[in-house]
Amino acid sequence: MKRRLTPILLVVGLALLIVAPLGQTDYIKYILSSWLIFAIAAMGLNLTLGYAGQISLAQASFIGIGAYTTALLTLAGVPWIPSMLAAMAVSFLVGLALGFPALRVQGHFLAFVTLAFNTLFYLVARNEDWLTGGPYGLSGMPRPDFWLFDTNQNLPFYYFTLAVFVVAAALMWGIVRSPWGRAFKGLRENPIRAESLGVDTRRITLLAFAIGSAYGGLAGALISPLVQFINPDSFALVQSIRILLMVVVGGAGFFFGPLFGAAMVILLPEFLRFTEGYYLMIYASAVIVLMVFCPSGLIGAGQALRERFRPGHRVRGDMKQGSQL
């Protein structure tokens, strides 16, 4: 039954994403696009953290690498698609170069190295004016124009983002379900056993990190034309922490976790606007409570909730969780 339901739900979910911006203000379309973009970045980090079990604190810098690469190329007249591919390639390679030495040593060292790297990236972006525009940043990046489909308005841009998101998610689905992806999972659950079964732990972890970084680059390639302005502050360490929180809050290791986590950070402030300055405090407290009672994140919480109900009540349990968001 489950197997037959999944495609239907996929279609329903997609349909919801398609109708979501209709009749909404420009602001909402913009926010929704930004949600999907952060979900892509979080999806990448989810591979590193949720499947390979390594903390990375450099996802914002990979978004930055992608954003600057795309901005520089598109400003120089290169079309968006090759710019995006270049952005992903650069992020992937930097990820490899950064992860290779860090993963030699076990423990939290990838976290330390990525933390240092993110701050270094910020300094370089700010100081190298000739390339990055320094603290003023770069602006006026064109939005992609695919002959009949021009993304200058926010609605087409949203659909463009959605299309990229769907492709990225499908690729990620493939990666996670491939023998490769199973190796990731095996790695997280039991690294020693995985190794004894002939999995090259280090190589798999490194690949997970580099692919996750490339997803960061992809998100950057989308932010560049969405905001049409980038400056170093948007890619500082705090942003990396923000994305890490998205992944964990959504549910690290769950495929749709990042989508929820990004929603918590990007969309929830809309509902909590009446709390004014207290929003961040509420959010932070909620994260702490979540970590105490359900460290596996919102989806984990949903599962725990479901187990309390009989199968007949399954749907209601899910609905309840959704409305709690």
Partner: peptide, 25 residues
């Protein structure tokens, strides 16, 4: 203390959230 049984990662995440909470507070 309440987080110790959950392992290392949730605690690290919680300290990140705590840093936001203290700052904003």
């Amino acid at each position: 203390e309440p987080m110790l049984p959950n392992g290392g990662l949730p605690l690290i995440i919680a300290t990140m959230a705590l840093s936001i909470l203290l700052k904003e507070g």
